[in-house]
């Protein structure tokens, strides 16, 4: 076997268009589950706070779902959603996101101090306005912390989908393995980590924008 350089830059240049296609596919498959997961977790989390008895069973079910290995779930889903489709990868990732986000929403809403809630009531806030203008903003840091975990793991897990034929950048791992060729694997790892870092950074920025008071307090 001849000596192989770790990264062959000319390969990256020649294959950049197809890498971009994989990258876009990866972003879609990672992003959609997080968004849907959040949209489902918000009402379920609210329900969990309002009706406490609902919360423990929900968390139990979510813990069970979270412990199911992604590859196993992809495979069980193939007869339903098809081999190598985006849906096969996105459905389990949506449930993983929910498993992280529902407790985050519940913890976030529970972190609203009681005197704050009572002040809002005393000021004549309707329950809906209280939720939107007082409780949810206070819950933002905890929810966003959950969202960061969900985003990073979603981005990293999409690549496992490559084993069932649809894994975005994960395809580069399979390609590199089959050809005993380092470059695609390294490109894939670097791009996944960069994607995760960008997502994390955006969420940190979102937190700063959504909770201006925490900065004001820090400066004072």
């Amino acid at each position: 076997m001849h000596e192989e350089p770790l990264v062959r830059w000319d390969w990256i240049g020649r294959n950049w268009p197809s890498i971009q296609v994989l990258l876009a596919d990866h972003v879609v498959m990672a992003l959609v589950p997080i968004v849907i997961g959040l949209l489902v977790a918000l009402p379920l989390g609210l329900a969990g706070v309002r009706w406490r008895w609902l919360y423990q069973p929900t968390v139990g079910v979510m813990n069970v779902i979270y412990s199911l290995p992604s590859l196993a779930v992809f495979i069980v889903l193939i007869p339903v959603t098809g081999l190598a489709t985006r849906t096969t990868v996105m459905v389990p990732l949506t449930f993983y996101a929910m498993a992280v986000l529902i407790p985050a929403v519940v913890d976030g809403l529970s972190s609203v101090p009681d005197h704050v809630r009572q002040s809002a009531v005393a000021m004549g806030f309707t329950p809906l306005r209280r939720l939107l203008q007082v409780e949810l903003p206070i819950a933002v840091p905890v929810v966003l912390a959950g969202l960061r975990v969900a985003a990073v793991s979603s981005i990293s897990l999409v690549s496992v989908g490559a084993l069932v034929g649809r894994g975005g950048l994960g395809y580069l791992f399979i390609d590199g393995w089959q050809r005993q060729f380092y470059t695609p694997i390294i490109v894939g790892i670097v791009l996944v980590v960069v994607l995760a870092a960008i997502a994390d950074l955006l969420l940190v920025l979102a937190q700063r924008l959504l909770t201006p008071w925490s900065r004001a307090r820090g400066a004072a």
């Binding site: 793991s153 950048l169 994960g170 791992f173 380092y182 996944v192 980590v193």
Partner: peptide, 19 residues
């Protein structure tokens, strides 16, 4: 530790085994 969480295991596995 947080950065390490973003590492795609499949890629890492394939790379290390190949090396």
């Amino acid at each position: 530790a947080n950065a390490a969480r973003a590492l795609p295991t499949l890629g890492l596995l394939v790379l290390i085994v190949l090396l």
